[in-house]
């Protein structure tokens, strides 16, 4: 009764949105596109794999582990590489290259783990799908319920943090103007560190859900990465609200678009589904690089009622 295509789309959208919130958060605060992020998700994927296939326990025990792994790795990346390079005065391009290098290193690490598991424990360690190990409530698979609940929690928490807490205000100030924020006594390094931790943790969490619904492996990060970049760019790369919006718009359009294309033209077209987010991203960049956030703001200025200053403040993060 609940069409599988909607479940597909929602699980995917939840994962992508979690990733794109992190991507945008780091970009707005540190001004670096975090290309190593997709590897944090792969860590999540393999923590679920370990829980189910090696330890034979409930896959959801992987959630805290995926979060912790992603967060620890992100902290390591920030303190060990990004911060060090910034001290030496490296620009955004050098940082990007170093993040790509880190991605290669981490991915190779995951591949070694996969090889080790295959050779020593003699199970498939690539291209696995653990849908059968998930629980169900009526027609709903557990991963759909848990990931939706989690993403709602994340969105509400982020919103409250950014608008109601001292730290959130410090964060928004850093986004607005980092040197000025530093002059006013905000510890920028700490803000950056925490944003990296959140990003890594969310990416790890998002990865733990993937194998419960999709066929996964070391390449899963790459699969998520394109959609993540596209949703962050479509969202505007300027506010996490945009990232949330972009995440859902892009991934729903990607899944549903490819579904209807497959229905019309045949199954072969499904393999090219990543063209959809890329095309949408290109369109946005060509016509409105500010993204959906800016489009909505412009529309509201044109047609809507004038906004209260409080609202303005909230959407400026």
């Amino acid at each position: 009764m609940f069409p599988p295509i909607i479940k597909d789309a929602l699980v995917y959208a939840n994962c992508v949105t979690m990733m794109s919130i992190g991507f945008t958060l780091v970009y707005t605060i540190s001004r670096i596109p975090n290309f190593a992020q997709s590897t944090f998700a792969v860590l999540g994927v393999y923590s679920t794999f370990t829980m189910v296939r090696i330890l034979h326990i409930n896959p959801y025990y992987a959630m805290p582990i995926g979060f912790a792994l992603g967060a620890v790795l992100a902290v390591f990346v920030y303190l060990g590489v990004v911060n060090t390079l910034m001290k030496y005065g490296a620009g955004p391009i050098l940082l990007t290259i170093s993040l790509l290098a880190l991605q290669q290193i981490f991915l190779a690490g995951v591949q070694i783990y996969a090889d080790y598991v295959r050779n020593v424990l003699d199970t498939y360690s690539r291209g696995f799908m653990l849908r059968v190990n998930d629980f169900r409530i009526g027609d709903f698979p557990g991963v759909l319920i848990i990931s939706t609940a989690l993403i709602l929690t994340v969105i509400v928490t982020m919103h409250l943090m950014l608008t109601r807490t001292q730290f959130g205000i410090a964060m928004r100030a850093t986004v607005e103007n980092a040197p000025l924020a530093a002059v006013l006594g905000i510890n920028i390094k700490r803000v950056q560190l925490i944003s990296w931790t959140i990003t890594g943790g969310l990416a790890g969490l998002s990865g733990t859900f993937l194998p419960l619904w999709f066929s996964s492996g070391p390449g899963s990060g790459g699969m998520l990465a394109t959609s993540t970049f596209a949703s962050s760019v479509v969202g505007g790369l300027s506010s996490i609200y945009g990232a949330m919006l972009g995440g859902y718009v892009i991934s729903l359009l990607e899944v549903w678009g490819s579904y209807y294309l497959m229905k019309t033209f045949g199954l072969w077209i499904g393999a090219y589904r990543m063209i959809i987010p890329l095309a949408l991203m290109s369109l946005i960049l060509m016509y409105e690089p500010g993204g959906l956030v800016l489009i909505i703001r412009k529309l509201r200025e044109k047609y809507g009622k004038p906004r209260s200053p409080r609202e303005d403040e909230a959407s400026d993060q």
Binding site: P33, T96, T226, F229, L278, M281, L285, P289
Partner: peptide, 24 residues
């Protein structure tokens, strides 16, 4: 074409995506 007039990060994101698309 989509990002050549924009700043580095956008161009990097688009080109990485495009290269992946060609490979796929």
């Amino acid at each position: 074409r989509p990002a050549i007039r924009l700043s580095g990060s956008y161009l990097i994101i688009v080109l990485i995506g495009m290269a992946e698309a060609i490979r796929i």
